[in-house]
């Protein structure tokens, strides 16, 4: 599904050059549930942006769905994003002057689906996420959890193969966070690859694979079997604080 080979990325900040990713090698199979962790500045968001074709890498090769992502035109990238990837953001990023249903339906608009049809589909997804009654509401009338669920519905509506979530629970309280994670888990159970970035251990421990980044490189990969250990280590970490 995803194959990263020696990915480098640096940003130019005025005169200095900031080397964010220093050679990432990573394979993610279809249907995996992965979280990327790391301290701030470790490059986790940059990695997610590259995975979502929102940013270009400088070096190395990136294959998504057996297709090399390289020097793509913006149009092509937009089309691939629309087809393959659904995004969920920390700050929800709903369009403020559109109601819930219209927000969910937007990706289909860019796919060229007729208005009536895409509104019906949007209602289906809202129903799936238990927000059918909120279809006509504007984003500012809803709670954070509801907004994030709408964002998830929007990410799912184009039937992507990959969901990329950038701190999806970062702006939510614990109970809502767990609800959102439940939803993501269900999505994953349907066979969609989910990759999320988080710095919360408890959120990360709900995924099946944790990639820890440190200084732009992969520090360790904790697989499903080791998660119990990770959880214990994490609780210990908490206790020592």
């Amino acid at each position: 599904m995803i194959k990263l080979n020696n990915i480098h990325k640096s940003y130019v900040m005025g005169n200095s050059k900031l080397h964010v990713l220093k050679g990432i090698n990573l394979d993610i199979e279809q249907g995996e549930f992965v979280s990327i962790m790391g301290s701030s500045g470790s490059g986790k968001s940059t990695l997610l942006n590259i995975l979502g074709m929102l940013d270009n890498h400088d070096q190395g090769s990136y294959y998504l769905n057996n297709q090399q992502i390289k020097n793509m035109s913006e149009k092509k990238a937009a089309q691939l994003r629309n087809e393959l990837v659904g995004f969920v953001f920390q700050s929800f990023n709903l369009i403020s002057f559109k109601n819930a249903m219209e927000n969910v339906a937007l990706p289909l608009y860019y796919k060229g689906v007729k208005r009536k049809k895409r509104n019906i589909i949007a209602m289906e997804y809202l129903d799936k996420l238990g927000l059918k009654d909120w279809a006509e509401h504007m984003p500012n009338e809803m709670s954070g959890g509801q907004k994030q669920r709408i964002a998830i519905a929007r990410a799912l509506i184009s039937k992507p193969k990959l969901i990329l979530a950038d701190e999806p629970t970062g702006a939510l309280d614990t109970t809502t966070s767990y609800e959102v994670m439940e939803i993501l888990k269900e999505i994953n159970n349907d066979g969609i690859t989910v990759i999320l970035v988080t710095h919360e251990h408890d959120i990360a421990s709900m995924t099946k694979k944790i990639i820890r980044l440190k200084d732009g490189q992969i520090h360790e990969i904790i697989r499903n079997g080791d998660l119990t250990n990770f959880r214990e280590a994490y609780t210990k970490e908490l206790e020592t604080i």
């Binding site: 994003r81 995004f87 990023n93 937007l106 990706p107 860019y110 184009s158």
Partner: peptide
């Protein structure tokens, strides 16, 4: 800017 960014993230082409 932000709205346009969102649109682009979910698949809006520059021409649209």
């Amino acid at each position: 800017t932000k709205e346009i960014g969102i649109r682009k993230a979910i698949g809006a082409s520059p021409s649209s």
